[in-house]
């Protein structure tokens, strides 16, 4: 019998938090997907209706939320690969912690330039173009 709970309960470590984040990002992306199919369906109503809806996607606040969406999808995708490697690769469980650090690094390497390109026009429209 272990003396303390630390190390015996599957609680509070990176294994659990990566699992929580996988669920949270998955639910967020699914609910966005429901909305996104409906807004895209406006192409079947009229070009004006669709363009009007798309204007909302170009507003600063929604533009910022899109960065969050891309970040959520990217985490879910990278951690999904990690889950598959844990399930199917013999050494996956041994390296799960290292793989989590790896996907965080990849996430940052993609999100920093990604967020720049996603937000640059919004910044220019809010604070004036420098060019």
């Amino acid at each position: 019998m272990a003396k303390s709970a630390a190390g015996t309960l599957y609680r509070g470590n990176d294994g659990m938090w990566s699992w929580v984040a996988h669920r949270v990002t998955g639910v967020l992306v699914f609910f966005f997907l429901l909305v996104h199919v409906v807004d895209t369906a406006l192409v079947r109503v009229s070009p004006e209706a669709y363009n009007h809806a798309l204007e909302l996607y170009k507003t600063p606040l929604v533009n910022l939320m899109e960065v969050g969406l891309v970040g959520a999808v990217l985490y879910h995708a990278l951690n999904g690969v990690r889950i598959i490697l844990i399930d199917f690769w013999a050494k996956g469980p041994k390296y799960q912690k290292g793989m989590l650090r790896g996907i965080i690094v990849v996430w940052l390497l993609v999100m920093i330039p990604g967020a720049y390109f996603m937000l640059i026009r919004t910044f220019e429209s809010l604070f004036g173009s420098t060019s």
Partner: peptide, 28 residues
């Protein structure tokens, strides 16, 4: 999941990041 990595990340790259991202999307 593996197939969606290609489909969704490709979709997000084209629609949100490349060449002006969401700002160039309209009916046309």
């Amino acid at each position: 999941g593996v197939v969606l990595i290609i489909l969704v990340l490709g979709h997000l790259l084209i629609m949100n990041i490349l060449d002006g991202g969401v700002h160039r999307i309209n009916f046309a």
